[in-house]
Design a protein around this nucleic acid. Structure first.
Length: 263
DNA sequence: ATGGCTGGTAGAACCAGA
């Protein structure tokens, strides 16, 4: 049966990293690439670069300076939608239908600031509210759906380098994890990362820039995810975390994930 | 030793990321 390869990558500025985007597309050859943190308004998005690499179909939701998502495809994309789940105008989602077969939702969940307290830090509350709105949206879905992106939450103890040292750090706090679990339960989303790399096996997708050599203490977190609706999950036949990308020249702090879907 | 870095934008002793 033919398969489609879908990739997701927080690129931390698409215009700063054409060299590694090209390397990834050449080596991995996904049919569709979902980028987060493009940091480019739609007017300055490097469309031509992707066209020249064989990806002429784009669904963009960008803004100046921060955030921004882009779904880049070899195949035509249908019916793109943009949800503002934070209700503040930030560009953090674009959704499309692929080949008339399934929906592909590309999302960049807010980081949530430093202090894990809604009253002291409004950004933390906005992050939780964003996921609550995703939960309300997700309940009513009927179509086979793949939701991918930077969720900015590492849900399992084995999704971080030290559960004990990160349990009070935004991205791994109990309230974030409970909020994400409610989202997961609302549609019985299948966490494809852990379907293919079962806990407690090590699996990280992000390492801070602040360590000179991220491999020395391996202080990673699994912040990026690809989740399938129950009526799609059985058609996902492969998954990969492209960890070497963290060591490429002038890397993003996140690495790409891929899945292979039978169509 | 969870900020030690990085990018965008302005022209910062900035902001944001997580």
């Amino acid at each position: 049966m033919p398969t489609l390869k879908i990739a997701s990558w927080n690129i931390n500025s698409v215009r700063a990293r054409p060299h590694i985007v090209e390397k990834f597309l050449t080596e991995t050859a996904p049919d569709i690439l979902c980028l987060q943190e493009t940091k480019a308004h739609n007017d300055v998005f490097p469309r031509r670069m992707f066209e020249e690499w064989g990806y002429p179909h784009l669904a963009l939701n960008g803004q100046k300076m921060h955030h921004g998502v882009a779904t880049i495809s070899k195949l035509p994309l249908e019916e793109d939608l943009r949800h503002d789940w934070q209700d503040n105008g930030e560009a953090r989602h674009v959704g499309v239908r692929v080949a008339g077969k399934f929906r592909l939702e590309n999302v960049y969940v807010p980081a949530g600031g430093d202090i894990p307290d809604r009253d002291e830090n409004p950004k933390f509350g906005q992050k939780l509210d964003f996921i609550e709105r995703m939960t309300a949206w997700s309940k009513d879905l009927k179509e086979p759906t793949l939701i991918v992106g930077d969720f900015n939450i590492a849900p399992l103890e084995c999704d971080v380098w030290s559960h004990k040292q990160l349990v009070k750090v935004v991205s791994h706090t109990p309230i974030e994890i409970e909020t994400l679990k409610r989202f997961q339960k609302s549609h019985d989303w299948v966490d494809l990362g852990r379907k293919f790399i079962p806990a407690p096996e090590r699996c990280f997708t992000w390492w801070s820039y602040r360590n000179r050599d991220h491999t020395v203490n391996d202080r990673g977190r699994r912040l990026d995810h690809m989740w399938a609706s129950p009526n799609l999950a059985d058609r996902v036949v492969g998954h990969d975390v492209v960890e070497p990308a963290r060591s490429w020249e002038k890397p993003s702090d996140h690495v790409p994930l891929t899945v292979d879907i039978e169509i």
